[in-house]
């Protein structure tokens, strides 16, 4: 079962942290359709965040069509996100691993690699209205 970690003063509201952590687990396949989310009581006991915070996060996930709450039974995953870890992606991961290895051999630092990939991802998957974040300026020729 997913365990939430809520960071204080991270700038991200606690309910959003719970939403994001759930989405990430759905994306990475750590949560599957039919899996049960922890109860509000369990999340509250583990994180000491207000019960309303957990309910708000779960409502948000429900509104996004990712989970459904059944009275008395709990909150269950009804849809997963993305393709990041399914079988089709396995080959891509392998290619990416090889590419990152070549980048390191070529002398690129961790930050260089992240900036480079971010700039390509931003170009290939443009966001609706936000301009791409500043990775472009660090792109190497």
């Amino acid at each position: 079962m997913i365990e939430y970690h809520v960071r204080r003063r991270s700038g991200v509201p606690a309910y959003q942290q719970i939403v994001q952590q759930t989405e990430q687990a759905l994306r990475l396949g750590h949560l599957q359709v039919g899996d049960k989310l922890p109860t509000a009581r369990e999340v509250v006991a583990a994180t000491a965040v207000n019960p309303n915070t957990v309910l708000r996060a779960y409502q948000e996930l429900q509104r996004a069509g990712l989970v459904e709450s059944t009275q008395g039974l709990g909150t269950f995953v009804v849809r997963v996100l993305g393709q990041a870890e399914n079988s089709a992606a396995a080959g891509l991961r392998e290619e990416l691993t090889a590419w990152v290895g070549r980048a390191r051999n070529a002398g690129l630092e961790r930050e260089d690699v992240l900036a480079l990939t971010a700039s390509v991802v931003d170009r290939e998957f443009p966001l609706a209205d936000e301009p791409a974040p500043g990775a472009v300026s660090r792109e190497r020729p």
Partner: peptide
């Protein structure tokens, strides 16, 4: 966390004083 679990589970009401606002920030409503 345990005190808040009683709120989530039984609808208990908590009135708690504190000098350390950081302790309260994510916990109170």
């Amino acid at each position: 966390g345990l005190l808040l679990a009683d709120v989530a589970e039984r609808g208990a009401t908590l009135l708690l004083s504190s000098h350390v606002l950081a302790d309260l920030e994510e916990s109170i409503d």
